[in-house]
Design a protein around this nucleic acid. Structure first.
Lengths: 127, 127
DNA sequence: CTTGCCTCTGACGTCAATGTGAGGTTTTAG
DNA sequence: CTAAAACCTCACATTGACGTCAGAGGCAAG
């Protein structure tokens, strides 16, 4: 498929797809005229990329993690494997952080809820 | 306390603290000479701000959410309350997304682990 | 062949949070 | 009193993942 279709099917913009390729995260075959063509799997690939981006991973980090899923090699594997575990741990920690934030937000919300209850005897009564 | 101490105690840079103030997220008393002075609570305040920033909320959104915790008013409250619930929901959804990403990453990791197991008969054997 | 849509490369624009530096004042330590 | 350290206000620079525009070519349909 061509880039437009891939964009439509993944929800990524055409610009983004070219950017991913530029970052070495996505490959494409080129037609003689230079147009990019992608296989079906590219859809999943892009989905994974978007997930990782969404998780706050940067292009550079993803670049260091994912090459091995395409062309595993002993050399790349050792480093990448370590990085993966590191990134997994970081992501896990981040999720915990977010849960803490969620609790903090809940607290703010319930503070506000209490305040509203106290002052809601009649909204027109407010100065 | 002055801005330097607040920075040190919160882990935020002096620049960031001034930025938070500029965004209306943090207030300070000024000495006659114009220097900022903060009360103890500012530490918690900044901690909360950093949490929300860390959760991906933007200044604008935080601005819309938090004023009511300082100076609650009927008018601000209604809107802000809605936004809070919305943001809470978004954060929750984001956490779910991240958990999915974590699973995806786990999958990549275990793929890699299997690959390593297969090809680890002897690392020197590799071409 | 031409009209219309898709694609190409390349380069500059954007946005948000923060870094950084200039140029000047204030506070603190000796 | 004086020098260092901290602070002040601009204001421009940076980074990352894109948006967007320009100028040019590719490709199916009428």
């Amino acid at each position: 498929m061509r880039i437009g279709e891939l964009a439509e099917r993944t929800g990524a913009s055409v610009r983004s797809l070219r950017y991913y390729e530029e970052q070495g995260l996505l490959t494409s075959e080129r037609s003689t005229s230079g147009q990019r063509h992608y296989p079906e799997e590219a859809v999943d690939r892009v989905a994974l990329l978007r997930r990782l981006y969404g998780a706050g991973l940067t292009s550079r980090v993803i670049t260091e993690l994912l090459p091995c899923t395409y062309a595993p090699s002993i050399e790349s594997s050792d480093d990448a494997f370590e990085r993966m575990l590191t990134e997994r741990a970081k992501l896990n920690a981040h999720i915990d952080e977010l849960r803490t934030t969620l609790r903090a937000l809940d607290e703010v919300i319930s503070m506000n809820r209490r305040w509203r209850a106290e002052n809601a005897t009649d909204s027109a009564t407010a100065s």
